[in-house]
Simulated assay, not measured.
Amino acid sequence: MKIRSAVESDLAAIVQIYNAAIPGRMSTADLEPVSVESRLAWYREHSPNSWPIWVMESEQNIVGWLSFQLFYGRAAYQHTAEVSLYVAPDRQRCGIGQKLLQSAILRSPELQLKNLIGLIFAHNQPSLRLFEKFGFQQWGYLPQVTELDGVERDIVILGLRCL
């Protein structure tokens, strides 16, 4: 398995993995599948040297991905990135998320990032445990800010200082 920068031809696999997470209501606030076309602008906002998207490849198949994005969208937050991480359903609990997150932490300084942020549903215990395993701490809590199938859900903001 190897981690590499995503290329545009990976977008279909990235979207497929993302869409597989939607029905579980554990890791995304999207309620309906997204299309490759709808994610093109998102993909093009990223580059390998700033705000990258990385994919984990195994036997020429993408089995997970991680993206960095500017937290809160203003210049003063340029050294803080929100991290999104998704793993193919049949490859969860195989260490892929750990490898992607560990790589994000280790490579943050070269991306000039001082802080990593994860916005995670409070009921998503596997993701909370993963981030906490790598030293992320609770930096905030947003009660009942999302509604999934009529159930109000909380968001935990986890953060890590990467200096």
Rank of each mutant, 00 (worst) to 15 (best):
A6V: 11
K114N: 14
I53V: 14
G135L: 08
A75Y: 12
A81I: 02
P109L: 07
A76L: 03
N115R: 15
A13K: 12
Q69T: 13
P52C: 04
A21G: 13
E45C: 11
A12Q: 12
S47R: 15
V55F: 06
G150Y: 09
I22P: 03
G73P: 00
E37Y: 04
F136N: 11
N124H: 14
G95C: 04
D149C: 10
Q60H: 13
G140K: 06
A104H: 00
E8F: 14
N19G: 09
L130M: 07
E132P: 03
G140I: 07
I155T: 13
L31G: 08
M56T: 02
V151W: 04
A13L: 10
V151I: 14
E57D: 11
L106G: 14
G135T: 11
Q112R: 13
R39Y: 02
K99H: 13
I22E: 09
R25E: 13
W54F: 14
F131S: 07
L85I: 13
Q98N: 10
P109K: 09
Q16V: 01
E45V: 00
S67N: 14
G159C: 02
G95Q: 10
Q144A: 12
G95F: 10
F131R: 11
M26V: 01
V55A: 04
F71M: 07
S9T: 15
E59W: 00
G95P: 01
I22G: 01
A12Y: 03
L106F: 04
E152W: 15
L40E: 13
C94W: 02
V63P: 01
V7F: 05
A76T: 09
P109M: 05
C162S: 11
Y72G: 02
G95S: 09
R74A: 06
L100R: 04
L70S: 12
S27D: 09
A104E: 03
S9A: 15
H46A: 03
L106Q: 15
E132F: 02
L66R: 03
P48H: 09
N115E: 04
R129N: 13
D154K: 10
H79C: 06
Y77F: 15
Q138S: 13
L70K: 11
G140P: 07
V34Y: 01
Q138F: 05
E8H: 12
T28D: 05
Q60D: 15
R4T: 09
E110V: 06
I105Y: 05
